[in-house]
């Protein structure tokens, strides 16, 4: 019994491995977020057959991918092709990272009143007795002078 998969036709055809190399960069047009090389639906198998034929005809992998993107849209590849959306994809997280870094740096600069607070609001972690608390308090006062 022949299970559903693409039969290697005789003649000029790219090897399965080459097809996978292209298919794993693409995504199934029907089921979202499933890479083309994993998808075993009839549509996806037809597509892989077409990829094999195009590769055999001498087209480069990028050309093959571009031809599918032109017909079906950006969502069949893992990186958005539309320039605006691609910019948004990469620039925004980079910007957000910079913002987070900025927030980190801001954290360093909040000195205001923290010295005063450390005197009165020293958090006792539970292991210190009264005596050592006093000790720490005195050393803090000393360090202020």
């Amino acid at each position: 019994m022949l299970l559903p998969f693409v039969i290697t036709a005789q003649g000029n055809r790219a090897s399965d491995t080459e097809v996978i190399a292209v298919a794993e960069r693409m995504y199934c047009p029907v089921c979202e977020n499933i890479p083309l090389d994993e998808c075993q639906t009839t549509a996806c198998l037809e597509w892989k057959d077409e990829i094999a034929a195009q590769l055999a005809a001498g087209r480069t992998p990028q050309d093959v991918i571009d031809s599918f993107v032109a017909r079906f849209g950006d969502h069949v590849v893992g990186v958005p092709q539309d320039p605006l959306i691609r910019a948004l994809t990469f620039v925004l997280p980079a910007l957000a990272t910079l913002l987070a870094l900025g927030a980190g740096l801001l954290t360093f600069r909040r000195f205001a009143d923290s010295k005063k607070l450390s005197l009165e609001r020293e958090t006792v972690s539970g292991e210190l007795s009264d005596a050592s608390y006093r000790e720490r308090l005195e050393s803090d006062v000393r360090s202020l002078r």
Binding site: A112, D113, K116, L117, E120, R121, T123, V124, S125, G126
Partner: peptide
């Protein structure tokens, strides 16, 4: 209960308005 044990009169006024 381990938390801020300092008596009321030692507490500072509000740090910021």
């Amino acid at each position: 209960m381990k938390r801020d044990n300092t008596p009321d009169f030692l507490q500072p006024g509000p740090a910021q308005p």
